[in-house]
Design a protein around this nucleic acid. Sequence first.
DNA 1: CATGAATGAGGCTTCATTCAT
DNA 2: CATGAATGAAGCCTCATTCAT
Lengths: 237, 237, 237, 237
Amino acid sequence: MGAKAERTRANLVQAARAVFAEQGYFDTKLSDITDRAGCSTGTLYTYFRNREDILAAIIESAYTPVLSPDHSGEVVLDRVSRIRRANREYIESYRENADLMGLMDQVAHVDAGIREVRLRRARAFVERNAQGIAKLQETGAVDPHLDPLLVSQALSSMVSRMCFHIFVDDRENPRFRTSQGIDELVDTLTTLWVNALGLSAEPDADARICTTGTRPTDSSAPADTRPTDITVPTGVS
Amino acid sequence: MGAKAERTRANLVQAARAVFAEQGYFDTKLSDITDRAGCSTGTLYTYFRNREDILAAIIESAYTPVLSPDHSGEVVLDRVSRIRRANREYIESYRENADLMGLMDQVAHVDAGIREVRLRRARAFVERNAQGIAKLQETGAVDPHLDPLLVSQALSSMVSRMCFHIFVDDRENPRFRTSQGIDELVDTLTTLWVNALGLSAEPDADARICTTGTRPTDSSAPADTRPTDITVPTGVS
Amino acid sequence: MGAKAERTRANLVQAARAVFAEQGYFDTKLSDITDRAGCSTGTLYTYFRNREDILAAIIESAYTPVLSPDHSGEVVLDRVSRIRRANREYIESYRENADLMGLMDQVAHVDAGIREVRLRRARAFVERNAQGIAKLQETGAVDPHLDPLLVSQALSSMVSRMCFHIFVDDRENPRFRTSQGIDELVDTLTTLWVNALGLSAEPDADARICTTGTRPTDSSAPADTRPTDITVPTGVS
Amino acid sequence: MGAKAERTRANLVQAARAVFAEQGYFDTKLSDITDRAGCSTGTLYTYFRNREDILAAIIESAYTPVLSPDHSGEVVLDRVSRIRRANREYIESYRENADLMGLMDQVAHVDAGIREVRLRRARAFVERNAQGIAKLQETGAVDPHLDPLLVSQALSSMVSRMCFHIFVDDRENPRFRTSQGIDELVDTLTTLWVNALGLSAEPDADARICTTGTRPTDSSAPADTRPTDITVPTGVS
DNA sequence: CATGAATGAGGCTTCATTCAT
DNA sequence: CATGAATGAAGCCTCATTCAT
């Protein structure tokens, strides 16, 4: 694909994302997209087969090859702090992609393909967290009667749905547009998360410097919501 | 409106609910509804102006004047049990109305009117819970640093979103179609809820027989999701 | 037909006339009529077969058995005064039935039946006038080169169209809502009419008392627009 | 708009004009138009929003930039001949656009926009004639008691309504399909017009060669019904 | 004779998609 | 590769008319 074509395509994807966010996925005419992109209707079909195809491209484009945050070299945090950090990363990522998250929500019930992707990702994410919880149950840190998968799903739901409320549904509310607001959100959700699991603070010994990329993972923390090549927290619905 | 008209209208509402649930709100053509209702297309317009109007009627019809469960005369439960009971009621109500809940979700982004209703109801519900939490903070039972409103919203989100996952998104999964499955769900969410708030079990003195309708309310419990005249747990989105 | 039925029917006709005038013949739904008449849609079909039938009834009802003005016993006027009187009668009659005249105009191009009636009436009227003019030509009072039919039609058109402009099209204009305004209109049109024919004032001998109903007709005057049993000046379109 | 598009649009306008004239404005379905234009229904909506929009385009298209007849260089006619010429031009223009004039009449009561245009144009035209008449009153050629505006409107009504009768309402009548018929019509109306105003023939001195475009205007003549860029005699309704 | 819900043919309009230029 | 007019299937919606009560 030529450079110009690349640009045209990117224009279309960007325009579609904006228009979908503004008018809603279903209320958008494809010509709205080409209008905004500044090209003719026919051009859209040079790059996409239909509406869903554009949506797929939007999602695709959000998964830019950005590495997940590399925490090596940082002071290794205690258990709670790691959960807090993971939550913060999820929340900030959500906020930055709120338009896309809202879009996904609109589309989830309708488009079978999208739905499948979403469901699969969410499941993978939840299962990873569940494994961490299971380990904590083995060490006695968490009540062994709880189903780790269920717990993982519940806590993930709590965080992701809060993000949806705050950044999509009630986005006019100014409360969470300041960094203090965000801090409070992160702290509150982290406290609830930690309490819910019944985690106590770890002994000091736990904190250490991580000198290599392979640091001890604490599987009680919400798994990084952003796999290596993913930028958007679509992991959790 | 005559009796027959009443029946025709009810038929249409019921048919619409079923068809919307099966085929999706947007993929349904209005003639699908009249086909299912066994009347002609024109008849639909005797009662409704358009698609959204039918949706409104569906929602309206769900709010039948069914009294919320009356627990007077029962053994008054301890704090945790009351939370469990409220969660159970919410969850079972959700399951019974899963089709409608799924429908609401599809539609939430579309109709400003519907969206407003939803948001307002959710807010009322969440605020009620928040007051209960605030009281617990005064008695020292809950960490006073937490914002009660935020906590209320987070825990409500956890429960409602879990219900959505289980009863709508992943409804094929057989796990929660048995009463054991439901029990497990109730127990898990209750445990997480109680833990998250940091509640301990109450002294025995708290349990007593409630001889009148006016029993002591424990505002730490999730407020009854079903206001006096409401049957569907739309209180939480 | 019972008395009540009579009343219902009359209600419908009156309602239809009002609604047609307000909203236009084609923009009116039949249910608008029954709404205004305060009866059910079905009732309309007890009395009329369809929209045109109602229109016919409206027209019919306008032709109330009111005798045409009886000028016997009055001082017999001179030629010009008789023309003036005929014009005045036409104009006032038009004004009183302006709503119906406007309705006729809307309908004239569409409904073949109505059109036929209208055309026939207009022709009869015009022909009567034409005969009067022809006689004047014989007496040398009017230029014999003119085709009496054409002249009759032209002068009738002038008067009727002016009425349409003033009482229907531009009915908001206050100028012709006073009796002075009407007088001026009558005088102007009469002057133009008389001048156009080239009539001079008659010798005094012409004025005399009319002692019987059979008075000498002066066929140069616009024929009375209101045949014995007619009240509306539909004679001229 | 591309050249082909221009052609398609013009086809549609022409087809609409024909079909409206044949079947009536209200009895025409939009697909009749596209059928006649030889395109699909959707194409109509590429150029027009609805029925009224097409009508507006028809009217618009009738006002093609055709210059009004240029009489400079001709023998300057006497007053009566100028009136006759103006009437002839109006009448012939009407005849050529009879279909459109009939259409306008059908529609006059319906669309407020169209109606407004019509009313405004008619008024402008009538006022122009009125000024001419006023001048004649100053010179004593016309009875000063008459209201020039009223007279202007009446005489214009006479001519325009006659045209309507002859070319629209009674178009089957063969009488005015020959040039003799037209001549007779022109002569009769001119005679009536001139007589009505009480004009006598002018002194010979008045006839002269007009060597430049700026010739003396005789404001007693019906103002040219066709302003510089207009082809249809919609000046008078 | 009145009622008013039910009917359903039929017009209007949209818009994703195609394709000749 | 871009253009944008043309396409036409598909739904929405209206409303005159019917008919069981």
